[in-house]
């Protein structure tokens, strides 16, 4: 059932985000072509500005569409269908979280893709010599094993961050939906309250613990030592994201399961 729920979420969101993804990639391509050929920088500046605006619109739209989708299909009129499907509340919520992560990742990939298109097309002073760059990187004898571990931790952090952010929004909407009027306003207030509580708890947890020394007092002389220190930071941040996600999941689950009251 989760797969089918994600499929219909994907279709509903895709029809809104798909066109903006295509627009961003197309304008990136145009920016690349202009950077390649036009000697006059005027048109390039205009297209670059449009691209910048489009990228911001895409990021904001991703957030807005995910918020709307959750509100509509859980607490709005479409909830009369979605919340009466033969699926448990847990399955319903997980499918929404997975959907949010997929769209968060896709938006990030489109942003990276846009940058990649421009970088690959623009040739400054005869172009970027990728082959030479790779040869130079190889000759530096970098600790690739340790770099890979840090990269994996970084990616896991990014995904956990998306999960946590999505669940924080879902929990805020769930709290806001309990109000009889101004549900949107109460959702925003709930979001601010969650952010304040989370930061206060984190502040006390960090200042009262003596587990990790400040980077200013740690002796980080080698590249490996810096990587190890970064790994500890990333791991700690991952643990925090998992714990806060679990709390927001529990809050959202309880409201969806016990306090669902469609208009």
């Amino acid at each position: 059932m989760a797969g089918r729920l994600i499929k219909y979420d994907f279709m509903a969101i895709g029809r809104k985000l798909g066109p903006i993804y295509i627009a961003v990639l197309a304008v990136s391509f145009l920016t690349g072509i202009l950077g390649l050929r036009v000697t006059n920088s005027g048109p390039l500046a205009v297209v670059s500005f449009i691209l910048g605006v489009l990228v911001i619109v895409m990021a904001v739209m991703t957030l807005v569409v995910l918020i709307q989708r959750f509100r509509k299909t859980v607490y709005g009129d479409e909830g009369y269908l979605m919340m009466t499907l033969p699926a448990s509340t847990g399955t319903q919520l997980w499918s929404k979280v997975i959907s949010a992560v997929i769209w968060g990742v896709l938006t990030t990939l489109v942003m990276l893709g846009s940058a990649a298109v421009i970088i690959l097309m623009i040739r400054v002073d005869g172009g970027i010599h990728y082959r030479e760059m790779l040869v130079q990187l190889n000759s530096m004898n970098l600790p690739w094993g340790k770099i890979s571990l840090t990269a994996v931790l970084f990616i896991l952090n990014a995904i956990a961050g998306l999960v946590e952010f999505a669940l924080m929004i879902y929990a805020s909407i769930s709290v806001g939906s309990q109000a009889s009027d101004h549900k949107g306003l109460f959702s925003v207030l709930a979001f601010i309250a969650f952010a304040v509580i989370e930061n206060v708890i984190l502040y006390f947890a960090v200042t009262k613990s003596d587990g990790l020394d400040s980077p200013l007092t740690v002796n980080l002389t080698t590249f490996e030592q810096s990587l190890e220190y970064l790994d500890i930071l990333l791991f700690a941040s991952l643990v925090v994201a998992v714990i806060t996600s679990a709390v927001y999941f529990a809050v959202t689950y309880l409201f969806m399961d016990r306090r669902l009251n469609l208009e």
Binding site: A12, D77, E78, Y80, L81, L85, P86, A87, S88
Partner: peptide, 21 residues
């Protein structure tokens, strides 16, 4: 009411509930 009952219960709410798009 839960997952099992929803599989055997057909429900027509008192409002439009199908996605318009």
């Amino acid at each position: 009411p839960g997952k099992e009952t929803k599989a055997v219960t057909a429900y027509l709410p008192d409002r439009e509930f199908l996605p318009g798009y």
